[in-house]
Design a protein around this nucleic acid. Structure first.
Lengths: 216, 216, 216, 216
DNA sequence: GATGAATGAGGTTTCATTCAT
DNA sequence: TATGAATGAAACCTCATTCAT
């Protein structure tokens, strides 16, 4: 009896539509009409699944955060040494290649701007940053915990995160005038030097091979 | 005949009002009426001095850019060595201290987001970034031109600019959870290491004393 | 085959929900969704039992009217003299005590306002008023038919009804600043004086005793 | 320099439009569009002069209250005895004749219904009722202060006010089936009887004649 | 230069009602 | 009977811009 709920699919559909519209028109410019059109739905239905426009944005923040986390998890599956994990962390956020999603990067920059003045958004944004800070500090600790003071690790992690956020900004506004893929490269180099410079930054063996017979 | 033109004052008044309102409500939320109220003017008068709202934003971009440039000029007045000039460059953009204007930083982050999708804004934004890129590369060349390839200098400069932009973003969204003043410190350290690590990053002697009767 | 119809329960459930929601949000503010929520049902089901929202209102009018009639019948069960019946009539509508339902009074006032401009509602409202007018005039006739002209009885009845309607209005808007229970008291007194002032207004013997073995 | 404000006229225009539209469609049905059309203005302009629709309603409440007060003041200009003043009070509110405004009466009934659940409206409504209560009690005191206890005067006043409010309700919903002008007549009679029945309820001499050269 | 009324397009949101399940 | 998604009209309100004064 009754009808099966499709709310989750619809919500994802709508969130994705917001992402695409936002990159073209910004959050304010992403009208409910435009989102609905992009999603192939009606405006009324948008409000059936989201109480207010702001809530779609919050869902989008979580979604974009999850994209980065997912990419990190995928890239670190085959990372065995701390160094390889660090490389996965940096690549997940900065390397272009497969899985990089320029639309999502644009959206993240716009979200960062909303976070400046919208409490709800800032909360989620800061949460995501804090999570990355923790992860990164842990990775750095694994690598250079014996050589660097905790405070220095925190500062290094903060700088790396700042560089990442700024690299997004420059990438989406100056797509042509920045050196290609400078960010991932320079960040790794910086970390290596800050940590004492002795470890290899080679990527882990490509995961393709291992996947054979690997349930995952 | 008649009144002396006060257009320039009025325009500055309005641009400043936009800056303050934007940090609270964003650009779209900064309505002409709100800007007028903040400036103590009337909506009609805003349009007498600016043909359209967008033009106020463009004027604001130029204004915020000029704040940074001015600060750099002031800090570099007493810089004699290339190293001191670099230090001034970094401090102008990242050090807190005197002249740092948190509202302007917020505005800059918001401007960066507008630059993602608004052509006029992006043009000015990129111009400003390109200018800094050029200045910074020149400084780095002066310091380490003999040791680093041009391409490496460009990458280093790009990374430093990215770190700056990202540091703004984190500073205005995570004012409390970032290590205090990590950005200026870490950026200098990174540059030093990248350049070979042999130069002093000491600030130039404070200008106060020397200025007296010192023509230089 | 199959399910036993629960239409009547459901309708009553819905009407009651409208009553409660209306007192908080008014008729227009009582959305189908709100009524459904209050009733613990779904919006779709509301329209299964009532073709349109307006029909719930009409059902509510009849229900609230019936509350008053029921209360009158209960209070007049033990009334033997015309005077006692009159007393029951007034108490049924104005006395606080047992069975008085402040929510229903609020709803009645709101219904009165709808009756001002909605034909269907006005029809039921006027019917109810006309019915009370007739009952009241009959009671007055029984009491003072020999002393008062028919026209005077009608006027007296009209005034009493007006006082009742107004008392509801004042009771629900000025719950604290009106003298306690002034309405029932003053109305009885007014009627007595208008009728010549010779009859007792004592309540009939309390029904409590009779209830034993009384099916009702 | 600048433009002369016409806000007060416009507001009155809008309030009057709400009054007229409300009597046809109720408050919720009185859409901004409809009000604007009735006033011959544009919807945008409505919101230029009133921040929100609700504020028009509040202004209307004050306006309708003032109609009653004005009518009372006009009718009592020539009232010399307390009895004549009382008569003016009752006639101002209940007599049909010149100056009676059926639209305003309808509006008042609708306002009463809003007062049931909207705090702002209730506040103004109760204020108006309290004011009348005070005035009426004073008049009754002047007439029968020596014969009635203060508490009885309050109850009598409350009943009179209730009768008035209810008479409005019945008048606008049962325009044909109520005895003509029963309310003013019966209320005066009731008061007279309650006060001991010795005073004349004659109207004061019509004001037209006396005004001539009569400084008073 | 300056004011403040006025406009009109367009935004978000609400909601009675319908309908597939 | 019952559910809950879906619709589309319409509501309130905002706001950049224009214009008479």
């Amino acid at each position: 009896m009754g009808r099966k709920s499709n709310t989750e699919e619809r919500r994802m559909q709508i969130v994705n539509a917001l992402l695409r519209v936002m990159t073209k028109k910004g959050y304010e410019g992403a009208t409910i009409q435009a989102i609905a059109a992009e999603a192939g739905l009606t405006p009324g239905l948008i409000h059936y699944h989201f109480k207010a426009k702001r809530e779609i944005l919050l869902a989008l923040v979580e979604y974009v955060v999850s994209i980065g986390e997912t990419r990190y998890r995928m890239l670190s599956v085959d990372a065995q040494t701390p160094q390889q994990q660090l490389r996965a962390f940096v690549d997940a956020r900065l390397a272009l290649g497969k899985g990089a999603d320029p639309e999502a990067v644009k959206a993240w920059v716009l979200i960062g701007a909303e976070a400046v003045r919208v409490d709800d958004v800032r909360e989620l944004y800061c949460e995501a940053i804090a999570m990355q800070m923790k992860e990164l500090a842990q990775l750095l600790w694994n690598i250079a915990g014996d050589r660097l003071a905790a405070e220095d690790i925190r500062k290094l992690a903060a700088m790396v995160l700042a560089t990442m956020e700024g690299a997004y900004q420059l990438a989406v506004t100056n797509p042509d005038s920045m050196p290609k893929n400078f960010a991932a490269e320079m960040v790794m180099e910086t970390i290596v030097k800050a940590c004492g410079g002795e470890f290899s930054t080679a990527k882990p063996a490509p995961p393709g091979r291992r996947r054979k017979g690997d349930a995952r």
